[in-house]
Design a binder for these strands. Sequence first.
DNA 1: TGAGCGCTGTATCGCCGGATACGACCGGGT
DNA 2: ACCCGGTCGTATCCGGCGATACAGCGCTCA
Lengths: 222, 222
Amino acid sequence: MTKKAAATWRMTDALAAKLVSFEGKVRTRRFAEGEQLYRQDEINTCFYFIKSGLVQVSIFRRDGTEVVLENMGPNALCGEGSAFDGLPRFSTAVAVEPTEALEFDTTRIESLLRADPELALAMLRLTSLKQRILALRLEHLVSNDPEDRILELLRRLSQMFAIDHERGRKIITHLTHEQIASMTGTSRVTVTRTMGRLREKGMLFIEDGFTILANDEDSEEN
Amino acid sequence: MTKKAAATWRMTDALAAKLVSFEGKVRTRRFAEGEQLYRQDEINTCFYFIKSGLVQVSIFRRDGTEVVLENMGPNALCGEGSAFDGLPRFSTAVAVEPTEALEFDTTRIESLLRADPELALAMLRLTSLKQRILALRLEHLVSNDPEDRILELLRRLSQMFAIDHERGRKIITHLTHEQIASMTGTSRVTVTRTMGRLREKGMLFIEDGFTILANDEDSEEN
DNA sequence: TGAGCGCTGTATCGCCGGATACGACCGGGT
DNA sequence: ACCCGGTCGTATCCGGCGATACAGCGCTCA
């Protein structure tokens, strides 16, 4: 049950534009803090484009632990996976802030696609991006080295939510060690230990509570 | 460098039908054993629908280890992720058997989508399925328990490639422990140990070299 | 038929991450 | 000021996985 957090995912404005253009043509919904957009195991055909707010998408495992997939902020799309394949949702989405979203329904989207082939392309590009992120997370999760797992997350955040800084990239998204732990499949203690090590190595700095990831001059990741 | 293996992924015939119908309208390509369909880090816009043969999709990590994402058999789609988002491929696809595939090009697919909105839906459904599989793998990879990781793989295979058997589901796909290890991020020894434990618990049987996964009406695991 | 190879089953050992516990710090609320 | 909840830092202990090595076994092929 992680608490309020900043977004860990978003898309480029160009991609979002296509979805935004449907405002008015589809239902706009508001979710209060704590309200669920959809719940694991249920079947339905809606997916959401988030206009404002913050939605946490996570999987609850059988042993009770929670795996946070992503914190979706403005311009993110969520729920499209299970909306299209008609199978029970594999994740739960909860608004952790008051959220406004466009609700698309796949049972009605066929007509939209017919009318606007660009929408199909935009959707495919979006799901492709998600596929990429998932695959990259997978790549680093197979490793049992926590440093590897945590760096992968930080690098992704540094790409998506960071601003340049004299010593690297300042990551605006603030995550507690607990949250990082639940996203990387490690323990809170290990996150603390590992980030301490990274700091000693000069790969990481903390300033005003923000994490600064040093540019990896040593290699050419991503 | 895992060797020849059986498929670990496929889609339902209904979904495949739409793609198959494009035979003749798009290029058909043949790949010899060992030939690459695409390579990690390169950029191009093609994706493939496999008609026959077997393609191994894997990620080569910086430390040199290989993560096998999937062995794609007939009726599988691969490469669509990086084909659509225009970023460097995150995986490498190699034919491990002589393979015949339909080659789609995203730069030309727009016209196809326009002409046939059903194609867009089929593609979205397909990528959704892939997203689901990736997310489920993720869910189990965050766990450091090898039993968890390995069971997830076996359950997936049991759903996709197994036939009923008096003691459970007989998994046709034959994988060596080494291959299972590289798909689950564990060591070969651990796979052997873990599967031994599962056998003792009666959750697993080996017969004629095939793995039989007991139906989990026994519900309680770990 | 025998040699060689790949796969499976074990054993030993070192290491490191999880569990647990506790203290320091910071901020908000009464 | 005081308390309190949340977060970060650190110590200890234990279990189990990875690395490595080796033995038995069933192939294939000469």
